[in-house]
Design a protein around this nucleic acid. Structure first.
Lengths: 138, 138
DNA sequence: CTAGTTGCAAAAGCTTTGCATGCAT
DNA sequence: ATGCATGCAAAGCTTTTGCAACTAG
């Protein structure tokens, strides 16, 4: 049995071609895609799929802890198949999102700050990415 | 002249009663209010004000660096009159937002990570706030 | 006086919902 | 066989836009 199918089954997810398709798109290059972007990609293989189905699949995966939702770009959510602790960087110029693997606050996990119990930290970094920096230095 | 009027004038902002009203609401207790919440509050003094005007005032203040927009609660923006570096905590139970004055990453400002130039970090902490913790321990 | 602001209504964009049809197990 | 997933259309929310009437300086 395929590994991806196994993983989904392990999470009690009923296998459908659409679900496998979304899963593969998310796995590909670990990108941070919007629902719309996933929709555009999956329509190549499933021309009749609807955006509502994409959202429902994403919500299912989120509830099963198979993906993370990030909102670094305020207007719309992006979906990230990496579920281990990491943070994100948004380039103000090209709007590309990068993973940031620093863990400056890992010591805070399940600790208290001002009496509040910290379960999780999402670090959103903003700036200019390496590619855009290189371009402007030409 | 009132201090608040002075501040707005210093930023080349034309004074209107609505603009003063929104500014006062934001200053009051340094809360993190949604546009809708500000709208509900200001309608007490200006019953004919529209939500579009509230948004336009908030956008003006944002452009003049008089406030920060935060999106810790994914669905909607909150507006914060504090513009110095700090982070935010969202209680998963009561949805209250608190300021977090830790600066774990201040050393990263204007430094590079993976070749990306960091201008700014927004830290979003999630967990259970002190009040909710106390309640569940009764 | 005149440019800039307000208020209203309508539109835009992302996301969710309801429901009939169809499919996985 | 049957409960669940899909696809479509419509609705829901937050936020933005266009425009005529008004107002601050």
């Amino acid at each position: 049995m395929e590994k991806r199918v196994e993983i989904l089954k392990k999470h009690n997810i009923r296998i459908t071609p659409q679900r496998l398709g979304v899963y593969e798109i998310l796995l590909d290059k670990n990108k941070h895609l919007t629902a719309e972007a996933i929709y555009r990609k999956i329509r190549v293989s499933f021309p009749t799929i609807s955006l509502a189905t994409v959202y429902s699949i994403l919500e299912l995966y989120y509830k099963k802890h198979l993906l993370n939702e990030i909102r670094i770009d305020f207007d719309k959510s992006c979906f990230d198949i990496r579920t281990d602790t990491h943070h994100h960087f948004l380039c103000k110029q090209c709007a590309e999102i990068y993973d940031i693997d620093l863990h400056p606050c890992s010591a805070l996990n399940n600790k208290e700050v001002d009496g509040h119990l910290i379960h999780e930290l999402q670090g959103y970094f903003y700036g200019i990415c390496s590619k855009c920096k290189d371009k402007s230095n030409l």
